Simulated assay, not measured.
Amino acid sequence: MNLALDFGNTFTKAGLFKENELVEVIRLTDQVEIDKIITDFNPEHVIVSSVNQSIEDIQSRLNDVAVTILSPDLPLPFKINYKTPQTLGLDRIAAVAGAQGIFPDTNCLVIDTGTCFTYDIIDNKSTYHGGGISPGISLRFRALHNFTANLPLIEFEKDVPLVGQSTKESILSGVVNGAIAEIQEIIRMYSDKFGHLQIIICGGDAKFFENKLKASIFVAPELVLRGLNRILLYNV
């Protein structure tokens, strides 16, 4: 049994794998829960990706387990063609590995609709070229509220008008329809540059965007966990 731990900006997830098969996903609320997972499942290998937790603190809970820490220096199943690989987000690395595992030898555009929107392209020769980062839905709502004097903080709603007839509706229309338009245009631009693409979408809002986009989309909610396990298998 392998364990993949993803400490993200918003959530922490644990994925339990038998080889390539994802057996169970557990959302963690406290690091103490890691102890219980280790006790209950006794994983042979663990891989950790963390953007917000001290690696030392995590390792202190995993003293008796073989731990692989994800970093740009770790051997990966693809080549990184990126000017500053040390600044490359670990979640982006893992998502690309997950996409490559599902669609090998294919041009893949990975779109993560989490706290930030990230766009990552890997080609059919296993070269990762980079991508883009923009604010996610919740960040856009908070920015409008925090940096203006009178605009309220709006919660994400899935029934969004095109023509807003109140301040709330206008914010919903601008943020959500603007995000849809952004993603659709980014897909078109990448398709123009790289040719045929497999579009893979993950992250908290993936299901919402699946039915809003014109392109054919493959939704992979646990793409980062799958990518972490693939990287782990590549290194053990």
Rank of each mutant, 00 (worst) to 15 (best):
I133C: 04
T12K: 13
A4P: 02
L139Q: 13
T113I: 07
Q53N: 15
Y128L: 03
E33A: 11
D159Q: 14
R142M: 13
V25M: 04
K18F: 15
L22Q: 09
I137L: 15
L223A: 02
N146C: 09
V160T: 10
N42C: 13
K207A: 13
N81F: 09
I102D: 11
S54Q: 05
A99D: 04
A143D: 07
I200L: 12
F78P: 05
D112M: 02
N81G: 00
F103N: 02
E24L: 15
D123G: 04
P77N: 10
K193Q: 15
E222G: 00
N229D: 08
I201T: 05
R27Q: 13
F209D: 01
M1I: 14
S138K: 14
G164Y: 02
K214I: 12
N2W: 11
L76E: 05
N124Y: 09
T106F: 00
E210F: 08
F141T: 04
I122W: 01
S170D: 07
V160E: 00
V163S: 12
M1T: 13
I47H: 06
E157N: 14
Q53T: 12
S126P: 00
G130P: 09
A220M: 12
L74R: 05
P152I: 08
F218C: 05
L228D: 01
N211H: 12
I111H: 00
G203H: 01
D73M: 12
Y82P: 08
F208V: 04
I187Y: 00
G15R: 10
F78G: 03
N9D: 07
M189Y: 08
L70R: 03
N124V: 00
P104S: 04
V48D: 06
I55M: 11
K212E: 13
E19Y: 11
S50C: 11
H45K: 14
F194R: 02
L3G: 09
E44Q: 14
P221G: 03
E182A: 06
L151N: 06
Q59V: 05
A99V: 02
E56R: 12
G114R: 03
T113H: 00
N2G: 11
I34K: 01
T87K: 14
H129P: 01
T148Q: 11
S126C: 05
G98V: 03
N229I: 05
Q31L: 15
K207L: 14
I80P: 04
R230E: 15
R27Y: 07
